[in-house]
Amino acid sequence: MSDITEYKDVWVFIEIKDHVEVHECALEILSKAREIADQIGQKLIAIVLALDAEQYLPTIEDYGVDKIIYLSHNDLKHYHERVFTSLIYNLIDKYKPSIFLFPSTEAGNALAARLAYRCRTGLISDVLNLELSDDYGNNLLISDKPAYLGNVLVKIICPSTRPQMCTITMGTFQKKKLKKKDVEIEEVEYNYDINGLKIKILGAPIRKDKPSSTLSDAKFVIGGGHGLNSKANFDKLYDLAKYTNGQVGGTRRPIMNGWMPEHLQIGISGETIFSDLYLSLGISGAIQHVVGITDSKTIVAINKDPNAPIFKVADYCIIGDANEILEELLDHYRVPE
């Protein structure tokens, strides 16, 4: 094991989304990483691998970096596990960063896990907060992350291997513009032979946009559960959403009942929402759903069972028939002919 005191600086992997723009989550992480770098008096360095990577550098420079290291090549248009892992591993091996942070996305999670294996270091996924502390070692990073389906929060350290690696979910930190003077830019030459890859792509890939949900961006989310009793009643949520500029989502049950498409699920295996108001109708409040709604500023729950667990996480509790209240709301908000 190499000497951990050789490792310095805070690195952030800058994911390029759909080969058109810098992923928002990477900018959010840069802002938090800037604070950490200042506290330990080291540099904040952004790592970019892309096709025509130069076009993204001005955006990245606006978020407090001291330095950008980039590779630009046609083979880097899409994330490729073997190519990205090898190229970035070479950078780690050469420069020895102390901390390396990644967006918690499909590519970010994959890349971070592979790199952690190659470095034989620890990786903490979906971190909710990061702080530096001397409690367990000099300037050690302490990561908070949820475990047991969001029932508990654990604090994890990586005391004796480097880099200290984490993935961070979108919306965890706030991005803040900050321009440093004299940002250093370093281009690293691309040198990967893609002929040795084991997976062959047969035929032209089809661009396939997954059914995207805008739940995570919605200001007002209306959630429905099994308590709505029928598809006809559940459909009324869409009417309410139309009149109030809301977004419909729900629990697992409406999907199983065939009332709602899968991509509108809120919770542990679906979306997390960050709305100003979440209105829950006929939802009992299983923990699998609750973990997806707790980032909402205000939660209103309507359920006829006064003991429904959803009330424990609600700001306003309405004990009553969700269908009856939904009908009244529609009467109020319905656009007159």
């Binding site: 034989r120 990586c158 939660i299 700001d315 306003y316």
Partner: peptide, 23 residues
């Protein structure tokens, strides 16, 4: 390489105001 140093039960703080009265 990773070490768990603390476990906390997540306690969700909310107002929990019950809205009473007629429908």
């Amino acid at each position: 390489p990773t070490r768990l140093v603390k476990t906390e039960k997540i306690i969700l703080k909310r107002k929990n105001e019950v809205i009473d009265g007629t429908t």
